[in-house]
Amino acid sequence: MNIFRLAADVLHVVSIFLLLLKIKTSHSCAGISLKTQFLYMIVFSTRYLDLFFTKPWHSALTFYNTIMKILFLSSSAYTIYLIRNRYKHTYDKVHDTFRIHYLIAGSAVLALVFHIRLTPFEIIWAFSVFLEAVAIMPQLLLLQETGQVENITSHYIFCLGSYRALYICNWIWRYFMEHRRNQWLAWACGTVQTLLYADFFYYYILSQRQGKKLRLP
């Protein structure tokens, strides 16, 4: 564990908190992509299969990871529940049109081609890494379709993007300090994922400087 990894995870938790806060306080899930939330649900449930095999009390780090994994899984399930049930009437279905089956199929094909080892567990893990890299795309498309973005929604996406950017710092740190060299798959996908946010980051920082709401062109 290093400061970048810890800060990244804190931002991830903050982003989830902001998302739920937005939905709860405005009694609306307008501007939130159900498709992105659904993709994260798939990402977490395929990535964290090891919850079934790992003893949480194996070490302090495994315990920490287990708590976080359960938190991510349950919060994304809860978010989907809120969008599909309680605040269904506010869901912007017309604009949330990204064809996610292409993302899922593409990630599955990539996972079959690129993986660390040829085992079901490693292929499913690779699938989750590929899918996470592109899971934000429906959300970004939805924002572009609607243009105006509520502050709290833009903070949510900013935190989510920063979380993965900090993971890159964490990997650089570990490369030099712990000599971890065989992580090319996570590094490559994490970098692609962070680059997807680049455009958003630019407009977010611009809007924060001007003290205005984020407006995407």
Binding site: R5, D9, H12, D50, T54, H58, L61, T62, N65, M68, K69, F72, I116, W125, Y167, N170, R180, N182, Q183, A186
Partner: peptide, 10 residues
């Protein structure tokens, strides 16, 4: 590293 070391991130 071994398996447990490789999958120690979220």
């Amino acid at each position: 590293g071994d398996d447990s070391e490789e999958k120690d991130e979220l």
